[in-house]
Measured scan of single mutants.
Amino acid sequence: MQIFVKGLTGKTTTLEVEPSDTIENVKAKIQDKTGLPPDQQRLIFAGKQLEDGRTLSDYNIQKESTLHIVWR
């Protein structure tokens, strides 16, 4: 499925993911596209910070959802 990651600059990155992907895995995909290391990424969805060990489905993140990224 496709999801979007929007940064503070307003730039949006598209990712191809599975609902079973962990947040850690998603951060690795973001690094592949942007070069930003996972330890500098904070992902937010529906006002919650996403924890590395959880999956996208744990947070009810579905296709075409938009996550927000904040740099540490």
Results as ranks from 00 to 15, higher is better:
Met1Trp: 08
Met1Lys: 02
Met1Leu: 06
Met1His: 04
Met1Thr: 03
Met1Asp: 02
Gln2Ile: 15
Gln2His: 12
Gln2Met: 13
Gln2Glu: 08
Ile3Pro: 01
Ile3Lys: 00
Ile3Cys: 02
Ile3Ser: 01
Ile3Thr: 01
Phe4Gln: 04
Phe4Val: 05
Phe4Cys: 04
Val5Gln: 01
Val5Asp: 01
Val5Met: 04
Val5Leu: 11
Val5Phe: 06
Val5Trp: 02
Lys6Pro: 02
Lys6His: 14
Lys6Gln: 10
Lys6Asp: 05
Gly7Phe: 15
Gly7Tyr: 14
Gly7Ala: 09
Gly7Leu: 14
Leu8Ile: 12
Leu8Ala: 10
Thr9Ile: 10
Thr9Pro: 12
Thr9Gln: 12
Thr9Ser: 13
Thr9Asp: 15
Thr9Gly: 15
Gly10Arg: 06
Gly10Met: 09
Gly10His: 09
Lys11Arg: 11
Lys11Val: 13
Lys11Asp: 11
Lys11Ile: 13
Lys11Ser: 10
Lys11Phe: 14
Lys11Tyr: 13
Lys11Cys: 11
Lys11Thr: 11
Thr12Gln: 07
Thr12Ser: 09
Thr12Phe: 11
Thr12Trp: 10
Thr13Pro: 02
Thr13Asp: 08
Thr14Arg: 10
Thr14Lys: 08
Thr14Leu: 11
Thr14Val: 14
Leu15Trp: 03
Leu15Ser: 00
Leu15Gly: 00
Leu15Asp: 00
Leu15Asn: 01
Leu15Glu: 01
Leu15Val: 08
Glu16Val: 12
Glu16Ala: 08
Glu16Gly: 05
Glu16Asn: 13
Glu16Gln: 11
Glu16Lys: 08
Val17Phe: 04
Val17Tyr: 03
Val17Gln: 01
Val17Asp: 00
Val17Ile: 04
Glu18Val: 12
Glu18Cys: 09
Glu18Asp: 11
Pro19Val: 07
Ser20Val: 05
Ser20Gln: 09
Ser20Phe: 11
Ser20Thr: 13
Asp21Arg: 01
Asp21Cys: 05
Asp21Lys: 01
Thr22Pro: 04
Thr22Val: 04
Thr22Tyr: 07
Thr22Gly: 03
Thr22Gln: 04
Ile23Ser: 02
Ile23Gln: 01
Ile23Trp: 01
Ile23Ala: 02
Ile23Arg: 00
Ile23Tyr: 01
Ile23Leu: 04
Glu24Arg: 14
Glu24Asp: 08
Glu24Pro: 03
Glu24Ala: 14
Glu24Asn: 08
Glu24Cys: 06
Asn25Ser: 14
Asn25Pro: 00
Asn25Gly: 08
Asn25Cys: 08
Asn25Asp: 10
Asn25Ala: 14
Asn25Gln: 13
Val26Thr: 04
Val26Arg: 00
Val26Ala: 02
Val26Ser: 00
Val26Glu: 00
Val26Trp: 00
Lys27Thr: 02
Lys27Ala: 02
Lys27Tyr: 03
Ala28Gln: 14
Ala28Thr: 09
Ala28Glu: 10
Ala28Lys: 15
Ala28Asn: 11
Lys29Glu: 02
Lys29Pro: 00
Lys29Leu: 09
Lys29Met: 13
Lys29Tyr: 07
Lys29Phe: 05
Ile30Thr: 02
Ile30Gly: 01
Ile30Glu: 00
Ile30Lys: 00
Gln31Ile: 03
Gln31Tyr: 15
Gln31Thr: 10
Asp32His: 15
Asp32Asn: 13
Asp32Ala: 14
Asp32Thr: 13
Lys33Met: 12
Thr34Gly: 04
Thr34Glu: 05
Thr34Asn: 04
Thr34Ile: 13
Thr34Gln: 04
Gly35Trp: 03
Gly35Leu: 04
Gly35Asn: 05
Gly35Val: 02
Leu36Met: 13
Leu36Val: 13
Leu36Gln: 06
Leu36Gly: 04
Leu36Pro: 03
Pro37Leu: 09
Pro38Ile: 15
Pro38Val: 15
Pro38Ser: 13
Asp39Ile: 08
Asp39Gln: 10
Asp39Thr: 11
Gln40His: 12
Gln40Gly: 10
Gln40Asn: 10
Gln40Leu: 11
Gln41Ser: 07
Gln41Leu: 15
Gln41Thr: 15
Gln41Cys: 10
Gln41Tyr: 15
Arg42Pro: 02
Arg42Lys: 12
Arg42Gln: 13
Arg42His: 13
Leu43Glu: 00
Leu43Ile: 08
Leu43Met: 03
Leu43Phe: 03
Leu43Ser: 00
Ile44Asp: 04
Ile44Thr: 08
Ile44Val: 11
Ile44Gly: 03
Phe45Cys: 03
Phe45Arg: 02
Phe45Ser: 03
Phe45Trp: 09
Phe45Met: 04
Phe45Leu: 04
Phe45Glu: 01
Phe45Ala: 03
Ala46Asn: 15
Ala46Met: 14
Ala46Arg: 12
Ala46Tyr: 08
Gly47Arg: 04
Gly47Ala: 04
Gly47Ile: 02
Gly47Lys: 05
Gly47Cys: 05
Gly47Tyr: 05
Lys48Phe: 10
Lys48Ser: 08
Lys48Trp: 07
Lys48Asn: 10
Lys48Gln: 14
Gln49Val: 15
Gln49Trp: 13
Gln49Pro: 11
Gln49Glu: 15
Gln49Ser: 10
Leu50Lys: 00
Leu50Phe: 01
Leu50Ser: 00
Glu51Tyr: 07
Glu51Cys: 07
Glu51Gln: 09
Glu51Thr: 06
Glu51His: 08
Asp52Gln: 05
Asp52Cys: 04
Asp52Gly: 06
Asp52Val: 05
Asp52Phe: 04
Gly53Thr: 09
Gly53Trp: 13
Gly53Tyr: 09
Gly53Ile: 06
Gly53Ala: 08
Arg54Gln: 08
Arg54Phe: 13
Arg54Met: 12
Thr55Pro: 04
Thr55Arg: 11
Thr55Cys: 05
Thr55Asp: 03
Thr55Trp: 03
Thr55Ile: 06
Leu56Ile: 09
Leu56His: 00
Leu56Glu: 00
Leu56Tyr: 00
Leu56Trp: 02
Ser57Gly: 11
Ser57Phe: 08
Ser57Arg: 12
Ser57Pro: 02
Ser57Asp: 08
Ser57Val: 06
Ser57Ile: 08
Ser57Lys: 12
Asp58Glu: 10
Asp58Gln: 07
Asp58Lys: 02
Asp58Ser: 13
Asp58Val: 03
Asp58Gly: 03
Asp58Asn: 04
Tyr59Phe: 03
Tyr59Val: 02
Tyr59Leu: 04
Tyr59Ala: 02
Tyr59Gly: 01
Tyr59Glu: 02
Asn60Met: 08
Asn60Tyr: 06
Asn60Val: 04
Asn60Asp: 09
Ile61Met: 03
Ile61Gly: 00
Ile61Thr: 01
Ile61Asn: 00
Ile61Tyr: 01
Ile61Pro: 01
Gln62Glu: 11
Gln62His: 10
Gln62Met: 11
Gln62Ala: 10
Gln62Ser: 12
Glu64Trp: 15
Glu64Lys: 07
Glu64Asp: 14
Glu64Arg: 09
Glu64Pro: 03
Glu64Gln: 09
Ser65Thr: 07
Ser65Met: 11
Ser65Arg: 03
Ser65Asp: 13
Ser65Cys: 05
Ser65Pro: 01
Ser65Asn: 10
Ser65Val: 05
Ser65Leu: 03
Thr66Leu: 10
Thr66Met: 10
Thr66Pro: 02
Thr66Tyr: 07
Thr66Ile: 13
Thr66Ser: 05
Leu67Tyr: 01
Leu67Thr: 01
Leu67Ser: 00
Leu67Trp: 01
Leu67Gly: 01
Leu67Ala: 01
His68Asn: 08
His68Ala: 06
His68Asp: 09
His68Met: 12
His68Ser: 09
Ile69Trp: 05
Ile69Asp: 04
Ile69Cys: 05
Ile69Pro: 01
Ile69His: 03
Val70Met: 10
Val70Trp: 11
Val70Gln: 11
Trp71Ile: 15
Trp71His: 12
Trp71Lys: 09
Trp71Glu: 11
Trp71Val: 13
Trp71Ser: 10
Trp71Leu: 15
Trp71Thr: 11
Arg72Val: 15
Arg72Tyr: 14
Arg72Leu: 14
Arg72Gly: 12
Arg72Asn: 14
